[in-house]
C-alpha cells in the first residue's frame, strides 16, 4: 500500500486526538498494518488548536511526524488557516461546512462535508462529531474497515455510548461515500 500520512486538526473538545488514536489502533491491532500516532502538546494543546499526526503503512515507519499530509482534516477555521498550506499536492483536504469557510485554493481535492449538521440532525449529540468524521475519512480513503474501527470503539468506550458511536460512524461513512 501507499504510505498514508494524515493530520487531524481542530479545537480542544472536538475529540480529534481520540479519532486519530482509534484510526491508528484499528490499523495496527485489527488490520495488521504499521502505524504511529503523535500529537501536539503544550500551550498549543490547551483549548486552542489541536493536531494529531498519523502515519499508516505496511512497511516500517521511522520518522514519526507528518510534514506534508496527504490527508488533512480541519474541523475549525483556525486549524484550516494554519494547516491547509501544508497539504501534499494531490492529497485531500477534508473540512466541515459548519466550522470552516474555505477561501483559498490548494492543490488538493477539497471535500467540504456537512458533518456537524448531519450529526445534529440524525443523532443530536455534537460529542460524536469526531467518530462521524472518522467514518467519512475511511469511506473516502479505504484505510481500514468500519468493523475494525468499531472493535476499537467497543474496547475504548463505555457500553452505553456504543450505539450512538456506531450510528455516528455509519453516518460518516455515508457522508464520505456521497462525496466520493
Amino acid at each position: 500500500m501507499e504510505r498514508s500520512r494524515l493530520v487531524f486538526s481542530g479545537s480542544g473538545g472536538q475529540g480529534v486526538i481520540t479519532a486519530a488514536i482509534i484510526l491508528a489502533e484499528a490499523a495496527v491491532v485489527y488490520e495488521n498494518l504499521i502505524a504511529v500516532q503523535s500529537q501536539s502538546y503544550g500551550p498549543e494543546a490547551r483549548g486552542g488548536a489541536t493536531r494529531s499526526d498519523i502515519i499508516i503503512s505496511d512497511t516500517e515507519i521511522n520518522f514519526p511526524k507528518v510534514t506534508q499530509p496527504n490527508i488533512l482534516v480541519c474541523l475549525t477555521q483556525e486549524s484550516y488557516t494554519k494547516y491547509s498550506p501544508i497539504v501534499r499536492p494531490g492529497g485531500m483536504l477534508i473540512t466541515d461546512t459548519r466550522y470552516v469557510k474555505t477561501y483559498k485554493r490548494v492543490a488538493a481535492r477539497q471535500k467540504e462535508l456537512p458533518i456537524y449538521y448531519s450529526v445534529m440532525e440524525k443523532i443530536g449529540k455534537p460529542i460524536v462529531l469526531n467518530i462521524c468524521t472518522l467514518g467519512a475519512v475511511i469511506a473516502l480513503t479505504g484505510l481500514v474497515s468500519p468493523e475494525s474501527i468499531m472493535k476499537v470503539i467497543e474496547k475504548r468506550m463505555p457500553p452505553n455510548f456504543l450505539n450512538m458511536n456506531r450510528d455516528a460512524l455509519y453516518l460518516g461513512l455515508n457522508i464520505g461515500e456521497d462525496a466520493k
Binding site: I21, A35, Q37, P64
Partner: peptide
C-alpha cells in the same frame, strides 16, 4: 525523550 514518551505505536 518526549517524542518516544508520547508517540503511540504497536
Amino acid at each position: 525523550d518526549e517524542v518516544i514518551g508520547h508517540m503511540r505505536e504497536r
